[in-house]
Design a protein around this nucleic acid. Sequence first.
DNA 1: CAATGAATATGATCATAATCATATGAAGAA
DNA 2: TTCTTCATATGATTATGATCATATTCATTG
Lengths: 210, 210
Amino acid sequence: MKKVNDTLDWPALIAAQPAAGLIPEPLREMAKRVDAEASETLFRVGDPVLHVYLVISGEARLTRLGRNGREVILQRSRGGFIAEASLDSRTYHCDAIAAEPTTLLLFPTAAFRVALGAEPSFCKAWQSQLAREVRKLRAQCERLSLPSAADRINHYIESEGTDGAVTINQSRKSWAAELGLSHEALYRALRRMQDEGVLEVDGNRLISKP
Amino acid sequence: MKKVNDTLDWPALIAAQPAAGLIPEPLREMAKRVDAEASETLFRVGDPVLHVYLVISGEARLTRLGRNGREVILQRSRGGFIAEASLDSRTYHCDAIAAEPTTLLLFPTAAFRVALGAEPSFCKAWQSQLAREVRKLRAQCERLSLPSAADRINHYIESEGTDGAVTINQSRKSWAAELGLSHEALYRALRRMQDEGVLEVDGNRLISKP
DNA sequence: CAATGAATATGATCATAATCATATGAAGAA
DNA sequence: TTCTTCATATGATTATGATCATATTCATTG
């Protein structure tokens, strides 16, 4: 887990990961940028909670080892804060690893807590961010509960887009993962929906046809 | 949407829905209990955000009407706060209906915002609650991304339980819905896993066998 | 008590997504 | 440039969950 000592380019960081924009000035100065290699451990069950982690690029995973020896994935993150609830805990209740070469920002937990208490604007912004995340995740759960690929695609367009259209800002493969589908099933469903005339695909723009 | 004017029994409310315990005293006195009938509307797209809604019993749904005329479900709630992100909005961006006879608590939005700003303990508790919800929902999304029923059940045991065991505090049917399975598929998977000796079922207690 | 409805449970059939295989195109490295 | 790699894309086969049907048990209510 290599610490990078360059001074941080915050506009670039925020462009890469908008959630970084929440961080107020004093906390920004305490941020450490870290580059983790694939399968490198970020923290383990029982470790003290020393930092708040923000994924800038790559992929971080929160996992737990099950009784049957199989690893259970609690979260895959390709950007944004992870393990926000650890702010309420002294130690971690899961492991975190980098699933591929990953860049993160680390903020000292103690200072993070102080800033939340001392800066009302940061506190409000943090709350709003959590509420937005809750809304997004609930919609995602409902979407994943739909059995058919076409229904999930339509649900995505209506819940994440506006007026029956949405722009996909990720690769088809990672979008397939977000939809809980194999990428093959996604390609096929898109093809079928276009053939049936219920969907228009223009690059990364998807338009639902009535 | 019948307003019930009885004085509220807070210990009973908190027992029925623990999230009610977050509410501080002054807000409790402004709470209105409401009984909604099946398919009754709670609010609609464009309505001003006048209240914060807490589902005590029954089921509330947040929905949006898609371009193709089909209703998209953004959230089904059988207990807890709904549409928390509406605290950051002047109007609603979805509809809310009671899917069955449902009891709710309503808090005036303005007073709720004031309380969040004025009472640090409430503000922290609200934040913690949102963070816990985020953690729970992320795990649920990962679970729903697993293709097989047995994998989802194992994931549930490991992520929601401790030491390879969990107690289900809901009916099998509603648990099946949470797992994104038909109830038939859940019954069958439980039977198969018991036959294979990888799961022990004792009433509502599930134990994963190595 | 009987009756009604809901949850629990299992069987049979069918639709569909996962998987494996294969091919093409685009981007980046040597 | 060529080579490599990865995303995109489609076909064939298989596994599995959804659906419909049917009992049974349980709880609630008249």
